[in-house]
Design a binder for these strands. Structure first.
Lengths: 333, 333
DNA sequence: TTGAAAGCGGTACCAC
DNA sequence: GTGGTACCGCTTTCAA
């Protein structure tokens, strides 16, 4: 295990020429004679010279790196988005660094503040749950003030003036609920473990609106991921339900699991529409009807928007909406 | 949207003191009077001064950042490991940047080479599939030569002399197969979509050894993720099988799906042992018996090893083995 | 065609 | 207690 990379200075000494000559030669400047270029390049290769990125970053005040900040990596949606971002950025001169907040406000602020100070050129962010509950957004303002553009997706902050890519959460759940009503369901419950998230609220609102429009009373079951199964079990004991909208993966799995445990016939006695990855949905039994959010597309859009913004800081702020689709599978007819 | 962060120099001008005074004051040097410190700190806070990380990195020749390179983020195992790494690193002064190779050799070399040049202080890597097939490892050697320690996990390279954390792939599949033999299974097939991976080979070898030890003939079904279902279907048509060992998630899901399609009674007519995330395994029906790899622990071990190595470059190379456990669920008695 | 030197944004040694 | 300056590794302008 040897020392750090060889530097220009060391090469210069070895070759008895100046540092600037080396630099120019390696960058194929016309100022340098072909002979010297050749001589220098050979020695550089011998020593496996690689320019120090950090020095370049400092020199040019940019790093060609963008930061992707997501609350969790265990979440199929966020990993889909990440792949979409990757897909676009890989074709650009930029690199990605991914950070995970674990839904923590403190981690999020720390990450954003650290990376703002010269480490990255811009951000793609889905806001942590804790940040959405505390409603403290100073770190985003500071990044923007610092000339680091931000693109928010899915979990966005209304009051922050930046590019955004969002899902039609309200509409998609509204439509799904209407679909259930139209197929004759009389008692539709909503199950959620994400009441604190903006997306959870929008989805719940969409559900409520559809029910109220049809003169039904909303029945909203909210609880933590740990206790949601028990809560669903209680629901079945106390109410007679013929359909469930589960607005996150945990809720969806809990609803299906408990329904099966109680030997309910699906979808005959109970219809379920939920959220889950394609892989999960297709391997459950019965296969789960889902509201599919096109994470890959969302990621692509975020990346494109950020690249645009990095090119042109002054174009107007844009908010893009990506529509979800209802993927009908066995739990729903 | 204003300019970049304010610099020490600009602060110095505003306050009519020297740059060094500002720097010392903000770093609470005893050389500076309390009055001046106060004055400077107030103005610094007003202007939201944050030291430029890149300048510090260049100055000190280290970045307090470590790179985690994984082949895929869609893979439950790698995300488990990532959480484990996060868990340890979060308590250290280091930051993590995550990069995804998508199993591509080219991406992997690009990532490692780019980050080696001053961007990170060390690596935690699971080698890409393509790298394992091409058997080109120069980028790792170059990182090590560059004084950037590397910890490999799961997908490791024998010939590279670095710290490693591996799973007992051979033994765990050997034991699982023996378990099946001991419970009276006569015709045990192995299904795989990862014949090119070192871990796939080890698992398959473990299976073969157990069968041969018991004087059975191995029956190995290998194919791509896209076509594995068809291959399994053919298997059922041509052979009479009473147990399957599926050594990756795709294979496991395919085996279960096709078995159900053919109305085989599980585990009565067909026993299945596979690989899958806990969440997936518990929500399949019947629930899947899995070989569980303790990804979180593996991640923690990797992180601890790298931190140790960064502290002490000269301690002997270490290879740690994390044993898997067989999580018995409904597909196996 | 080559080299000297300034500068990117900090820190720290050494004078004063 | 405060300020000047060299240095980290590189690029680039300007002079030779």
């Amino acid at each position: 295990m040897s020392r750090n990379n060889i530097t220009l200075k060391e090469l210069a000494k070895k070759l008895s020429v100046s540092v600037s000559t080396i630099s120019k030669a390696l960058n194929d400047s016309h100022e340098i004679s072909d002979a010297t270029k050749k001589r220098i390049k050979i020695v550089a290769k011998q020593h496996n010279y690689q320019p120090n990125k950090i020095a370049l970053n400092l020199k040019f005040g940019k790093t060609n790196t963008i930061s992707v900040v997501i609350p969790s990596i265990q979440n199929y949606f966020f990993s889909q988005v990440l792949i979409g971002i990757e897909n676009v950025i890989a074709k650009s001169p930029y690199n990605i660094i991914v950070s995970i907040t674990s839904e923590s406000f403190k981690k999020e602020t720390q990450i954003v503040k650290t990376l703002s100070n010269g480490v990255v050129d811009g951000f793609i962010i889905a806001v942590a749950e804790e940040t959405q509950t505390t409603q403290k957004f100073h770190h985003f303002e500071s990044a923007l003030a610092n000339n680091k553009p931000v693109v928010m997706f899915d979990r966005v902050v209304k009051s922050i003036d930046c590019d955004k890519v969002v899902v039609d959460d309200f509409e998609s759940v509204f439509n799904a609920t209407k679909h259930l009503i139209n197929t004759g369901k009389k008692s539709i419950a909503l199950v959620s473990t994400i009441p604190n998230l903006s997306v959870g609220k929008s989805r719940t609102n969409g559900y409520s609106k559809a029910l109220i429009d049809a003169s039904f009373t909303p029945l909203i079951i909210e609880n933590s991921k740990n206790t949601i199964k028990d809560t669903v079990e209680k629901l079945f004991l106390t109410k007679s339900i013929d359909a469930i909208i589960a607005i996150d993966e945990e809720s969806s799995l809990a609803a299906l699991k408990i329904a099966k445990k109680r030997n309910l016939q699906i979808p005959k006695q109970l219809t379920i529409i939920g959220y889950a990855s394609k892989k999960m949905a297709e391997n459950l039994c019965p296969e789960l009807t889902t509201i599919y959010q096109h994470g890959f597309l969302i990621g692509q859009s975020c990346a494109k928007m950020l690249l645009e913004r990095l090119k042109n800081k002054h174009k107007p702020i844009h908010k893009k909406i990506i529509n979800s689709t209802l993927n009908i599978r066995e739990t729903c007819l």
